[in-house]
Simulated assay, not measured.
Amino acid sequence: MKKRCALCLGVILVLLGQPAVWAETTSAQSVRIAIVNVATLLDNAPQSKAADAKLKVDFVPREKKLDAEQNAIQQLEDELASRNEAGSLPEEEKVQRQRELRDLQRKYTREMEDFREEVRTARDAAIDALQAGIIQAIGEVREQEKIDLVLRESNYIVASDRIDITNKVMQHLEQKFQAQTALVVPVPAAAPTPAK
């Protein structure tokens, strides 16, 4: 009966101008599905920690400089206020110092906005690169493990630990990081031994 229905369907498709494609399946093919926790990888991958360290190296000195400028402005404000309350500040000097203080505050505000924008841009670029690297690593692990479908942690409700490949991807990322670091870090040459 099944063959007869399939034949009828094939004839109808041919009459409609559609190619008839069918195959008898004698054995079911298994589909391998896995899950991965991308948030864990983003937080704990060595590439993530290296990106954080690079951002700190790039921006912490400038942040400290801006903090020092803010402290200096605060000291000037306090000094101006105390001298003004004591009445030891002539009006002309008071106006001049207030103007200088406003100029310093405006300059500081501009520098701080520029700094925040640069940090945001650098952080976004680092996150984009990190996400691309993680997606590539997931794809490489998927190929190695012959997995048909990988779901992100937010795309399922419940899953078995047996199909979670987060640790495998983390190990893959660690291996790639170590290989990359080995290429970048020069090995110090051995010191020559003194002649006797």
Results as ranks from 00 to 15, higher is better:
1 M>E: 00
7 L>I: 08
7 L>S: 06
8 C>P: 03
9 L>C: 07
9 L>I: 11
11 V>S: 01
12 I>C: 09
14 V>C: 03
16 L>E: 05
18 Q>G: 10
19 P>E: 14
20 A>D: 11
20 A>G: 07
21 V>H: 15
23 A>P: 02
24 E>R: 13
25 T>G: 09
26 T>F: 04
27 S>G: 10
28 A>E: 14
29 Q>V: 15
31 V>T: 15
41 L>F: 01
46 P>Y: 07
46 P>F: 04
48 S>P: 07
50 A>K: 09
52 D>W: 02
52 D>Q: 10
60 V>K: 12
60 V>A: 11
66 L>W: 07
72 A>L: 13
73 I>Y: 03
73 I>K: 02
74 Q>V: 04
74 Q>S: 13
78 D>H: 00
78 D>F: 00
79 E>S: 15
79 E>D: 15
82 S>P: 08
82 S>A: 13
87 G>V: 14
88 S>F: 10
92 E>P: 13
93 E>S: 08
99 R>F: 06
100 E>Y: 00
102 R>H: 01
103 D>I: 09
104 L>M: 12
108 Y>K: 12
109 T>H: 07
109 T>S: 08
110 R>G: 06
111 E>N: 05
113 E>H: 07
114 D>R: 01
115 F>E: 09
118 E>I: 02
119 V>N: 02
122 A>R: 14
123 R>I: 00
124 D>E: 09
125 A>C: 02
129 A>H: 03
132 A>Q: 13
132 A>N: 11
133 G>M: 05
135 I>R: 15
140 E>A: 14
140 E>K: 02
141 V>A: 08
143 E>H: 14
143 E>S: 15
144 Q>L: 15
145 E>K: 15
150 V>G: 00
151 L>N: 05
152 R>M: 12
153 E>A: 11
155 N>R: 08
160 S>Q: 09
163 I>E: 06
165 I>A: 06
165 I>W: 01
166 T>R: 01
169 V>H: 00
169 V>W: 00
170 M>A: 05
170 M>D: 01
173 L>I: 06
175 Q>M: 04
175 Q>Y: 01
176 K>S: 03
178 Q>M: 04
183 L>R: 11
184 V>W: 03
185 V>P: 01
186 P>H: 03
191 A>P: 04
192 P>N: 07
193 T>L: 09
194 P>G: 05
